[in-house]
Nucleic acid binder design. Sequence first.
DNA 1: TTCTTGGATGAGAATCATTATAATCCAGGA
DNA 2: TCCTGGATTATAATGATTCTCATCCAAGAA
Lengths: 142, 142
Amino acid sequence: MQTSHEQFRDLAWKSGLAATHQRQVIYEAVMAAPGHYSPEQIYAAVRRQTPSISLATIYNNLRLFVEHGLLREVSPRTSTLLVEGNLEPHHHLVCTRCKAVQDIEGDFINYKKLSRQAPRGFDLTQPLVEVFGLCRRCSAEK
Amino acid sequence: MQTSHEQFRDLAWKSGLAATHQRQVIYEAVMAAPGHYSPEQIYAAVRRQTPSISLATIYNNLRLFVEHGLLREVSPRTSTLLVEGNLEPHHHLVCTRCKAVQDIEGDFINYKKLSRQAPRGFDLTQPLVEVFGLCRRCSAEK
DNA sequence: TTCTTGGATGAGAATCATTATAATCCAGGA
DNA sequence: TCCTGGATTATAATGATTCTCATCCAAGAA
């Protein structure tokens, strides 16, 4: 059985990333337990083992890990607030790379299955969804 | 037929909001054409008619309009980046009010219908979705 | 093993979006 | 028309994230 150090070195090598000590501990902090973590949370956890680490290093490497598919961004966020006047129920297609948002029509959600899976008390009246993918330009550039 | 001014005064009255000149022009700027608009874009458009308006007023009123259902927020955004190590395809349930994110299992997407609706060139390999609603706590507080 | 070098890191400044503050201002009821 | 509480303005403050640049180190070469 591989140690977690070896696992990371392996992944880093496959992604063409240098296996630095900082990257190791950041990666292990995220993988230690399932969950959604913010840069500040990871910073706090990692500093216990590596007090000299910089917050900028956390940000740099999280971005790198997400780009290389070692981690997933929980909720691809546009840089600014966006509002729309179209109140008709409709969905959005979001490019995970450039964050562009376009409307998408159509009924592709099985509401019965969805509400069966939702936790008790979660209000799904008018469930709107965002579908993630790569827009034409970004998928061409890749 | 109602003028757009009358339409807004009507909506404002129904929502219990004072119908100020600023609110009028902000609302009309968003409704002028279908699309997704940022506060800065709206600010730029509105300043042409009302040069003295403040950016803070744009932000205040967009938030107010969204809260009262006159406008919709395109993409409810968490305040900070969140990453996860779980790379298995799974979806997220997001509270539009407090922005809390939880995992949701299950296969409630009709991928065939979805890809039929997506524009040409949009890469939907591994389509992940976020479903919006109100978490138990927020739907109780409402 | 040591050497070399380009990429990685650390500290803090800078930037960007958004919110808070406090002094006017005005919509709408009396 | 007059009052009053909420709305607006200008600007400062905040919080998240990125940038800058001097220093450091991982990893291939010798």
